[in-house]
Design a protein around this nucleic acid. Structure first.
Lengths: 129, 129
DNA sequence: TCTAAAGTCTCCACCAACCGGAGGGTCAAG
DNA sequence: CTTGACCCTCCGGTTGGTGGAGACTTTAGA
């Protein structure tokens, strides 16, 4: 398969696939004309990567997960550990964003939003937290 | 004031302050020896920037907010608009992260996390969403 | 007065995770 | 035989900085 077909199957941009090759996540063969040739297993890996990325795993996490995926003698504990650590990161980010949302929505509520210059949002920003 | 002192007052890294000058957010004067000289107003601006960044505003938002901050004839409506748009971004991100959290925590629950290879997390990742 | 430490300067490279475009080769259809 | 759809590599840009090299200045202490 050529890259275009694979891109459709794995639902990934062509550029991303080339990038994943560049950083060693996949290793497609080459045809004599220089075109990449993908096997079924490459499509599986790309699908896997796309899904993992959509769950927010970093590329390095993906690399580790992919190795476990391909390793028949893995321990599910290793997978779970990566997932748990990532979940903790996600929860931390959610908390951070919720704090921002809270502050911001209070400020927005307090702001009249008319054509006068007086603005509690700017007043707050000018204050050291 | 020199940059070190300002960095302490505004609670920002020196590198960040130099970067903010580079992108035109602040314009400190220079001493004959080449050192940057900061006025009170620069410290105010930097404090403002630090606080705005901590609320997640992008640099370009910060630039716009700073201009409004310095413009005595601004309309609070303009400020509010920027803040509301940013709030919408934050809320979208929270939703996205919550969806990830939901999926991920279910997968983690389903994974035994022992030394056997069987793993619902990997099975899920291998499936097109 | 000399020296060492601390502070400052510029410039360059790097991080994540790609995206866009230039400039060129290849392939299939009409 | 040409046209258009693919494909290739390489380079630069994105966001918001951070780290370090190498050089200069200032300050404090002996």
């Amino acid at each position: 398969m050529n890259i275009g077909e694979v891109a459709k199957m794995a639902e990934l941009p062509i550029k991303t696939i080339r990038y994943y090759e560049e950083i060693g996540l996949i290793k497609p063969k080459r045809s004599t004309n220089g075109y990449r040739i993908f096997r079924e297993s490459d499509v599986h890996k790309l699908t896997f990567l796309g899904r993992a990325r959509s769950l927010g795993f970093s590329i390095e996490d993906c690399r580790a997960l992919l190795q476990l995926y391909e390793n028949a003698t893995r321990s599910s504990a290793d997978v779970k550990k990566i997932a748990q650590e990532h979940l903790a990161c996600i929860e931390a980010k959610i908390k951070e964003l919720q704090a921002m949302r809270s502050t911001l929505s209070h400020l927005i509520e307090a702001c009249s939003g008319d054509d006068r210059p007086n603005c509690p949002i700017l007043s707050d920003l000018a204050t050291l937290s």
